[in-house]
Amino acid sequence: MIRRLLYAIPTLLGISVIVFMLTRLSPGDPVRLFTFGSVTITEDDIRQLRAFYGLDQPLPVQYVNWMLGVLRGDFGMSLQYHKPALGLLLERLPATLQLALAALLLQLLIGVPLGVYAALKRGSWVDNAIRLFGVVGHAVPTFWIGLLAIILFAVTLRVLPSQGLLTVGKDQSDIIDRLRHIILPAFVLALAGIANYSRYLRTETLDVIAQDFVRTAHAKGLRNRTVVFTHALRNALIPMVTALGGLLAVLVSGSLIVEQIFTWPGAGQFTYAAARVKDYPVIMAGVMLGSTLLVVSYLIRDVLYAVVDPRIKAR
């Protein structure tokens, strides 16, 4: 376990070096972008701004300075906002987590029953429909489904708002309004997961149903419902627990696109916007935050594996 934790450190270091170099080496200059359109700016001013943000240093020096800052919890100042990058990002993180958790709930609440139901009605038209949905839901691009959902529910039917966290003029604590806003993005974000879960659960349930202990349960005269829920489902769900670990990271990264479409003011949208204007400190903080979440969630998954299945030892 400790060894696994130690592995995480070089992984994160490696990611930081690669992302740092990629952002710096890709063409573009944040100071020129930021000052573009200023009537009176001189070359000297641009040099001073570059020096102020430490961008005039050689790349390795910039990296070391950045790393030293990170060790002190300082990811640098955002060039756009002139505020600490990490703080800005953490300000946006709750919105992302809200969306991710809502999507996770939807995936479980919809995906699991769909899969089990399909397995129990194997071969029926319902099963076929769910399987078709499983393939389509996984294959269609999120941005396309997102726009369709906006056009259908927000524009044509006008039942749900299409953008943002809150209706203009509503108070932050208006729970109903917040819920109405989260429905569309959460569903769109959850869609691929729902599709995956339903396929996964269908396969697992079919496996379990075919096993001896289920036949035994039937043979000893238990009601069908008891067999399915207490015996079959419980066993089919075990592998699911482990899948949850990696899910948080997937949701957080997947929310980048969804946040963009629905103008959901989360960390993903924020990092994306920063990438467009080469706001280096924010890009770095955003990527490192996402990577850390990913690494941590894989650690959790490994631990859960060992808990659920004692044959696998976390080493």
Binding site: S38, T40, I41, T42, L49, F52, H82
Partner: peptide
Amino acid sequence: KVTPNKST
């Protein structure tokens, strides 16, 4: 130090 309009 951060204004883009230093020389106005």
